[in-house]
Design a protein around this nucleic acid. Structure first.
Lengths: 244, 244
DNA sequence: ACTATTATTGTATTTTTTACAATATAATTA
DNA sequence: TAATTATATTGTAAAAAATACAATAATAGT
């Protein structure tokens, strides 16, 4: 093999991580975006939170670090999703220019490893670097973003749907700790883009032990106040152990 | 951001692809391994087929290229699975030495993007480079492999099970074009490591339109010859279009 | 002809999913 | 305070899917 492959065909490349963090605003899914630092005059220049990875860290660590640096989020579950490796993804001169500005290095090729997360949308965000803002953007109203970030979000959405089918409990990461049944139902409807029958949904939910009804109810609503529920992580983890 | 991150914290790295190709020998799942070229005397030194990626290609292209170079396989469906990025994965001096031998370059850090594929086990294999052999190895009898290749296979197996749940039709890539019902059942049993009821399995299979019974039967078997079936890709693709 | 081995198939039961709409309650309004 | 508005809450019947369970059929080899 070493005889047929000349070494200069291979390449070293920079490797980044990009985080796709989803939130739910009771109507639709949102993605967490940061404003890109740039000297060029622009109205808005939003992108996924991301960064090159350091020498000493693996990609998981880099993803947590960058999310903390750019949004203040510390404790969060991030799951590796997919690598985006096309040489074409760093063809836009604006993007090349921004990379050189941000990292003080000419970067011609950059592959990125994307990470996914589900997050409560009212989570406190402290952007550490004062020049950048952080904001939620509805997935149906995303701006055109640099690199292939639009494509990354698109594929991430499909992946989220697969996750939910495989492990329905992950949706609670998108809800406040106390939520109503209709909030939960609307979340499912947003993920699947499909209306669900209220009664059948109730039947299904009420059979799930780890979705616990509380004595509390909504306040300050102009109609009958709905009961609040919580997701019980301990019951959820016990769920499988009785079968064996 | 550029002010708090010194550029020399970042790194360039080599990036490889590694292919985990599964086959089914009517009893258990197998993985396609290649013999590593090495000057050191060893009895056997098997690893996943993999290679550094070229400057001009993306990871998908690299995966197809390397599989073709090392096994002669050309047309195959490869799906990106996961990146393995730990700095620890290139800590073994033997592995570093082999990388230098194979690529004529000192490589201290190497991340790899793994690809998965399902393949008919009787597929013709032509290893292009004459010094390396290619062989199927049962997943339960894997040798200790370089880098983190054992871990990659382990995680790949779990991923395959998720695939099959999501899209049961992919299992036909592991079977010959004509197969018996019991071959199909044994494949499911191998994937799930669980016995399945013969009658219920038949009931389920006979309800699936794209699994087509043929008039042909087994030959040269010392017992009642079983009917052969085929997977009809066209019927499979039509499967969803009638609902709408 | 007999044996060994695997193929083939049905029924009753249980569980899950689906379709469908009337009543209850909190806040607001007249 | 009675009426209105908006959403919450809940049951039943039918259909579909999953499960448990074992006797008979066919072929190759002796």
């Amino acid at each position: 093999m070493n005889t047929i492959l000349a070494k200069d065909h291979f390449m070293q490349t920079y490797v980044s991580v990009d985080c796709v963090v989803f939130g739910f605003d009771n109507t639709q899914l949102n993605v967490l975006l940061v404003e890109r630092n740039t000297q060029l005059p622009r109205l808005r220049d939003l992108k996924l939170p991301g960064s090159l990875i350091y020498q000493h860290e693996n990609a998981d660590e880099a993803a947590h670090r960058v999310l903390n640096e750019l949004t203040g989020i510390k404790k969060i579950t991030l799951k590796q999703f997919k690598s985006f490796t096309s040489p074409e993804r760093t063809r836009n001169p604006d993007d090349i220019g921004w990379l050189e500005f941000a990292y003080s290095n000419r970067i011609d090729r950059l592959i990125t490893i994307s990470y996914l997360s589900l997050c409560k949308i009212n989570r406190r965000l402290n952007n550490v670097s004062k020049y950048q803002s952080v904001e939620w953007c509805p997935v149906n109203e995303l701006p055109t973003m640099p690199f292939d970030h639009n494509q990354i979000v698109e594929e991430s959405l499909e992946e989220i749907r697969r996750w939910v089918e495989f492990d329905p409990a992950i949706v609670f990461e998108l809800l406040p700790s106390k939520f109503t049944e209709s909030e939960l139902r609307k979340l499912y409807e947003a993920i699947y883009r499909k209306e669900l029958d209220v009664r059948n949904f109730h039947k299904r939910i009420s059979g799930i032990k780890y979705i616990v009804p509380l004595e509390e109810r909504q306040t300050k609503v102009a109609h009958r106040a709905a009961r609040l529920f919580k997701f019980d992580k301990i019951l959820y983890n016990k769920r499988m152990t009785t079968i064996e």
